[in-house]
């Protein structure tokens, strides 16, 4: 646990910002943040809460808490700032880490990248049981080893580009983990795609699934699949917005990955379209045709209109409706 008395009396001191490390270091867990609001706050009110640092014998400082404040001050080209300095070896590193964790959790929720950073740092000082039992719930994560393992793996394997996509919400953490086993070049190609187009979480999963499958089945690399002329044409089509491009791309990749199912769906749609159904009448197949049953939906205002719609429906060539993959001509 953090002993707050340990830092109550620490000295305030003017510190040259150039002597503070630029990197998050062993205690900080901030990633993918926008410095703008903090810069505006510092410009308006100054540094109200001095960062907490620990120094070494060479006069260099490591941030224990206040990483974003230091970053903002450096961006503002400030040379010095008042900080609280913990003397060397005065407070154990695990306690410094917890100070940072609680300092952050008190004011905001960490994004998934930051949770990975936090767990990776906790993993250096605490047992797996302690992390699972005491800290995962604090981070808003299910307290189990599988989740811990995923976050540690994410932090270890993912490049900055993928982490940024996750921190900015362009790629979900779960989908990012689907990329963890890919080589960095393939991962980068997919992250680029996710960052350039706009996909829902389920679309992201589909894209990753189709592209990795196609690469393996067709003996191509993932970048090769993604540089296919059809893919490039969709991504580069200036007449579509990003969500439209995303849907079109998924549709194309799905047709390529599932040719028989896609053909059956297309053939079925054609049969139904040829029936000249009333706008309020719909005929649909089950998901993937797995159920043997088809579905008829009729919207009507009253019995009279229902009769009219059904009579019109009955006059159509309904025998054409059937399993479109069968060789009986019904689907053609």
């Amino acid at each position: 646990m953090v002993n707050i008395d340990n830092i109550r009396g620490v000295a305030h001191q003017k510190v040259e910002l150039a002597s503070i490390d630029d990197f998050p270091g062993p205690y900080c867990m901030s990633f993918g943040f926008d410095l703008g609001p903090l810069v505006r706050s510092l410009e308006g009110a100054g540094l109200l809460n001095p960062p907490l640092l620990t120094g070494d014998e060479n006069g260099r400082f490591t941030i224990v808490a206040g990483y974003r404040r230091i970053k903002a001050l450096k961006q503002m080209k400030v040379d010095t700032a008042t900080c609280r300095i913990i003397p060397v070896n005065e407070i154990p590193p695990a306690e410094c880490l917890l100070m940072n964790l609680y300092d952050n959790l008190a004011v905001r929720e960490l994004n998934p990248v930051e949770k990975g950073m936090a767990l990776t740092r906790l993993n250096c000082w605490f047992s797996t049981e302690e992390i699972v039992d005491q800290y995962m719930a604090l981070l808003g994560l299910p307290p189990n080893r599988a989740t811990l393992s995923s976050y540690l793996r994410f932090e270890e394997k993912m490049e900055i580009q993928a982490k940024e996509a996750v921190a900015l919400g362009r790629l979900s953490f779960r989908n990012a983990m689907l990329l963890a086993d890919l080589d960095p070049v393939s991962r980068s190609a997919l992250v680029d795609l996710m960052s350039n187009l706009k996909f829902t979480i389920s679309q992201q999963a589909h894209i990753i699934d189709y592209v990795t499958d196609l690469a393996l089945i067709e003996g191509e690399t993932i970048p090769e699949v993604l540089s296919d002329s059809r893919v490039r044409a969709i991504v580069g089509d200036s007449l579509m917005n990003k969500p439209q491009k995303g849907r079109r791309l998924i549709s194309y990749l799905r047709r390529r990955r599932m040719p028989r199912l896609s053909k059956a769906e297309k053939d079925f749609r054609k049969v139904v379209a040829d029936l000249n159904l009333d706008k309020m009448v719909r005929i649909e197949h089950s998901p993937f045709f797995e159920s043997p049953f088809y579905r008829l939906e009729v919207l009507f205002r009253d019995g009279q209109s229902l009769r009219e719609k059904l009579e019109k429906l009955m006059s159509e060539d309904l025998e054409k409706i059937g399993d479109p993959w069968k060789d009986n001509g019904r689907g053609d």
Binding site: L261, P287, E290
Partner: peptide
């Protein structure tokens, strides 16, 4: 074994 056309069953 994952090359085929798989769908989510009932």
């Amino acid at each position: 074994v994952l090359d085929g056309e798989f769908i989510k069953g009932l």
